[in-house]
Every structure is written in structure tokens, then in C-alpha cells.
Design a protein around this nucleic acid. Structure first.
Lengths: 220, 220
DNA sequence: CGGTGTGAAGCGCTTCACAGCG
DNA sequence: CGCTGTGAAGCGCTTCACACCG
């Protein structure tokens, strides 16, 4: 077991590990004990070599005869990806999209990630509990995040407010941002930012739906 | 002007072009006439060389002295990306996420892409108009999509139903799918699929928020 | 045999670096 | 000068291909 982070690991590998884990959980539910790399690869839409390569990153080895032990592998990935005592997340912007995300991640629906605070500038939305998550006014953003020691933020506000909100989050101590606003977020290299631009994605799909797409499906 | 699609163009370039166009529209609103590659690059969070390289794909040339004409460039990108007479989109799954997406794309909010039909299996949701979009029962999926000649589909149903829904969409003639269910969609190579897995993205952000991220922000 | 683990090759995208030009 | 357009180099991720093993 290597606990050293010296060996650099790619963003894409982390994403696939997260996907593998979910697929493994579903396999466990079906009662599967062992799985081969090519089976997992099929479910994940990648190649078997890719799966085995990713397993090198977590340091888990399978058996050449039986493949990977489903439960052990899922636990290894969890051990690698998760913070042992869970992580808290803040969400800014309680619109339709914000509520959609709350319904996935608030109220302890996920074991290791939980949205524990939501913020909005609309006075009618604050000081209530939405989908199991306490809502605060924007003014309380910095103190609440510092109080709860939150390091992860999700932005679901309109384009014009995204960058100022991000700056405030960073000032409050946030280290990672998931941004849904259709504008790339600018942050220092100490902050990890992932932009999910649905408008862009839909335009991509529309484009390749017209041109005959001889592309492969992308994991992300 | 090359109308030939022989020169292969990457998925990532298409995504950035979509982003550039939006940034250019916002620049136009501010009254800017010209923009240099490094300025656009700064707004997009990419390098100047990347911007110029992408411009090669659309075949638009700037002036070495003034840079790019904002309006002309936006139009060139539109000419390259869009279908001249617009494209219709179908959405399956009218939950929180479905409504969030409808609020972006239904009712003609975007010029070239419009969600014109939504489907759900819940009888209480169908045969109404939600956010400017007509809702139909699942049973009508194939005929409605064929009737309207829809080629693009968005999936916002739970994980277990995503693949069957995708199969039905494809049977109805859909050529591109934007999938929000947390399971990769399997489709033939004639169909372009883009998966947006929010759970995976949030786990990535949480991971790199803990590990000191010396990563660059990603455009996609 | 049919798996896994992994060095090495392959490939696509990004960046460099420079010619050309007003 | 400073910017654009672009061949060529660089780099990271994916895939190949094979040693090894039960």
C-alpha cells in the first residue's frame, strides 16, 4: 500500500475511478463476487487496458484467474478517493439547477460527500430548509463556510455573478469549485476548478448529430 | 471558405468554439469592435495559440494589426457550428434537472437550439406546457420525435432507465444524445453521445480540493 | 489457455517558435 | 514593433503487446 502521493495521477483517472466505484456498487447489489477488467471496461465504456492501468493508480491487484474481487476493489477505490471522515460541500444559487443538485447530494444521500449549506441572495429562499439543506443569505457565505470548514463549493448562479461568487468562495477558504455557470471561472493554481457548461455540451451534441459522427463516446 | 468536412475537427475544438461565440456575444454587447487572440484566450481560460489554432478550423482570418473583428468572427463561428434553419431537441425526464435545462433551452430562448418536446412517464406531468415546452407521455416518444424530425435528445432520467430510453431515442432516429444519468450510455458509432456525470465531477473536485491541486483549470 | 501487470509504442492535442506582414 | 498563421516539437493519455502466472 502506497500512501505517497508522489506519483502524479491524472484528472481523467480520478473521474473514471469514481465511475468504476459506482459500477462496482451496482455489481455488488447484483451479487457479483468477481469481475474481469474487460467486463468492467464494457460497463464503463472504456478499454480493458484502460481499466487495468487505472487500477495501478489505486495499487489494487486482481487475480489472473478470478479477476478483481468486487467488494475489495470498491473499498480500495473508496480508500483512495474519499476523505475518511467525509467532506462538506456548499452550494451557491438555489434555482432549478441548484435544487436538482441538492436532491442528489443533500441530506446525507451520499456517504462521503454532503451539501451542508446553500446560499442565495433572494430573501424568500433563505433561512429555510430545502431538500434537507439549510439555506443562508449571501451575506453569511464567508462566516458559514469558515465555521463549518467547507472546502468544496458548487456554483449554480447566472453567468454574470459566477466570478464574483467564486472569488468570495475562495476568500472563505474553498479549495475546489464545481462551476455550472456558462462562463469559465478564473482562479489561482491552488484552487481546482471544474466547469460544466451545459449549453456548450448541447451545442457539441447538436453539431455532431448533424455531421456524421464517427467519434467514440467520451467518458468525460 | 472550405465547406468540405474532410479535415477532421476535434470534439474539444467544437466545445471551445461554442464558448468563444458566447464570449464574443458578450464583447459585442460591451461595444467592442476588435479582439486579439490573447484577449479572447484570457476570457476563455486557454492560451492565445489555442485560440488561433481553433480559428484555423473555422477558416476565419484576423488582421495582424487589429486582431479579429468581433462581429465577423461570431458570425463565422455561427456559420460553422449551426444548422441554418435551427435544430430541435427532445428532453426525456421532467425532474428538477429536466426543468433546469428547459429553463435554458425551451421556448426559443436560444436562437439555433430549441427544446420542442419533453417526455415523462408520470401521468401528472404530461399533456401540459412546462417552461414553454409541450410535455408528452413516454408512449408517444417515437412518433413525436419522428413527426418533428428531431435529431438531438437530452436524457435526465434515473440511472436505471437511461439505457432503455437511449435505445428508444435511437430507434426514433436521434443522432446525438446528451446524457445526465450517472451511467455511461452505450450506442453505436453512428450516434454521438456526451455524458455529463455530475456525481463524478463533484467527486473529482472534492478529491483535488484535498490534495493540493497543482492542476490547471479545465475547459471541459 | 485466459486472465493480470506493465514497458514501450502510438496518437492527438497543445504549445513553441518563427516567418510574414501592416 | 506586435500580432496572426502555422510547421514542428513536446507532452500526456491511451493502446499495444508481451511476460508472467494459476
Amino acid at each position: 500500500m502506497r500512501s505517497l502521493g508522489s506519483n502524479v495521477i491524472s484528472v481523467k483517472t480520478i473521474g473514471r475511478l469514481s465511475m468504476y466505484r459506482r459500477l462496482l456498487a451496482s455489481l455488488l447489489g447484483e451479487g457479483a463476487q468477481y469481475v474481469y477488467s474487460h467486463q468492467l471496461a464494457h460497463k464503463a465504456g472504456v478499454t480493458a487496458a484502460q481499466v487495468r492501468r487505472d487500477m495501478m493508480a489505486v495499487g489494487y491487484s486482481g487475480s489472473p484467474t478470478k479477476g478483481y474481487d468486487v467488494r475489495e476493489l470498491a473499498e480500495s477505490i473508496g480508500h483512495f478517493l474519499d476523505c475518511p471522515d467525509g467532506q462538506s460541500v456548499a452550494l451557491v444559487g438555489i434555482g432549478n439547477l441548484g435544487r436538482a443538485i441538492l436532491s442528489y447530494f443533500a441530506g446525507g444521500r451520499r456517504p462521503h460527500l454532503s451539501i451542508v449549506a446553500a446560499f442565495d441572495k433572494d430573501p424568500y429562499k433563505v433561512n429555510r430548509v430545502v431538500l434537507g439543506c439549510r439555506c443562508y443569505p449571501m451575506e453569511d457565505l464567508v462566516p458559514v463556510i469558515q465555521d463549518k470548514g467547507i472546502r468544496v463549493g458548487v456554483i449554480t448562479v447566472p453567468a454574470g455573478e459566477a466570478q464574483p461568487v467564486a472569488d468570495t468562495l475562495i476568500r472563505a477558504g474553498i479549495k475546489g469549485i464545481l462551476n455550472f455557470a456558462p462562463v469559465p471561472i478564473r482562479a489561482g493554481s491552488q484552487i481546482y476548478v471544474e466547469d460544466i457548461d451545459m449549453a456548450m455540451s448541447l451545442e457539441k451534441v447538436a453539431f455532431f448529430a448533424r455531421k456524421g459522427s464517427l467519434e467514440k463516446e467520451v467518458g468525460k
